[in-house]
């Protein structure tokens, strides 16, 4: 808060005070008051005015400087009412009370929305569990009644299941609350589940599936990782390149700081200009236009989940040659130490 601006703001007040002082002087002169008394009175008037200005300026400065400073420091600006003290001047009090009211009503509104998002999320999760029942039922029916069974039906069922899972993980990835559980997980197990899920479509398309990850373990949520790896493998299957023997190769590297899981395919690859956009929401790019079922959500969700779990996911590719996705898992020293001390 600057004094010059404050004075400018109170210009009318000052002019009025000056006019009053001039009138008092005129009256004193016309009453033939003794000169010394006039000087004394003027001294008191002017000093009084200055003291008043300084006092008023200082208490405002104290409040507003703290207010602006705190506001600047705060990440969530609406928390300002928790930081400042109620000022001791009238308009300040009004401001303070109003801010408090505004904040309260905004907090209520936010609460309302977050509850309704929470409700929606719960409903989606419940719905997904519900829709899995008929899926399980049809799977069993097709197995029990081989005469009904057809590779095409099984494939379409898998598509439904994949799409449903995508919704589930989208909801989970967008949600602020922590609904994952990090524990030591064998990469082999996760990959085995993904392989089994995609077995029919891999065999149908003559894609060789090679896995060399040894018995490496990582700290992750196995269900989330399974979804992430499934997204990548599904893409590899979707974008195979004709004229070559297709393969997907999964390997893992380990050093003392991290484990890197690599999923390599010799598919159509990604154009250089598209490469840094593949994790963008709803980005489909040139490849997406070649395949009907591209939503541009799979890798976006995979990236969001990785962020939450603390893994780093990257994709490297060369058009008409290969695509390689890498997921980096940090080793947790604390976890290692605890394991050793057991």
């Amino acid at each position: 808060m600057k004094l010059s601006k404050y004075l400018k703001n109170n210009f009318l007040n000052l002019v009025l005070s000056m006019v009053v002082i001039v009138i008092i002087n005129l009256m004193l002169i016309s009453f033939k008051t003794n000169n010394q008394a006039i000087i004394g009175i003027n001294f008191i008037l002017i000093v009084g005015l200055i003291i008043h200005i300084i006092y008023d300026f200082e208490r405002r400065k104290k409040f507003y400087n703290k207010f602006l400073n705190d506001l600047d420091l705060l990440d969530q600006k609406y928390l300002i009412t928790e930081m400042i003290e109620k000022p001791n001047f009238y308009d300040g009090e009004i401001l303070y009370d109003s801010l408090y009211e505004i904040d309260k009503s905004m907090a209520e509104k936010i609460k309302e929305y977050s509850l309704s998002i929470q409700d929606f999320k719960e409903y989606i999760e419940m719905w997904i569990h519900e829709v899995k029942l008929p899926l399980a039922s049809i799977n069993l029916m097709l197995h029990n009644h081989k005469e009904l069974s057809d590779k095409k039906i099984v494939e379409q069922l898998k598509r439904i299941d994949d799409d449903v899972e995508q919704v589930l993980y989208y909801v989970r990835s967008e949600n602020a609350e922590k609904d994952y559980l990090i524990k030591e997980t064998e990469l082999n197990k996760v990959i085995s589940n993904v392989a089994m899920k995609n077995k029919d479509i891999l065999l149908e398309n003559n894609i060789n599936f090679e896995v060399e990850v040894g018995n490496k373990k990582v700290l992750t949520d196995s269900k989330w990782l399974e979804f992430i790896v499934n997204q990548i493998v599904s893409n590899s299957i979707k974008y195979i390149r004709s004229g070559v023997e297709h393969y997907i190769k999964i390997t893992a590297e380990e050093n003392n700081k991290s484990v890197i899981l690599k999923i390599y395919d010799n598919g159509i690859g990604i154009e250089k200009s598209d490469l840094n956009k593949v994790f963008n929401k709803t980005f489909t790019g040139n490849n997406g236009r070649k395949v009907e079922t591209s939503t541009g959500m799979g890798l976006y969700i995979a990236k969001q989940l990785c962020k939450k779990l603390g893994h780093k996911i990257t994709i490297d590719s060369k058009e008409s040659e290969f695509t390689e996705a890498s997921i980096l898992f940090n080793k947790n020293d604390f976890f290692e130490v605890r394991k050793k001390s057991k």
């Binding site: 399980a136 799977n139 197995h143 069922l157 269900k223």
Partner: peptide, 28 residues
């Protein structure tokens, strides 16, 4: 059809021998 890690860990800690999520491959 509950497919979270927490559900599985809980069930295994209560003494389940295995945990399979729906829809599953019947052969599996």
């Amino acid at each position: 059809s509950k497919n979270t890690e927490a559900d599985e860990v809980l069930s295994m800690s209560y003494g389940a021998d295995d945990y399979i999520t729906k829809p599953y491959n019947p052969t599996i």
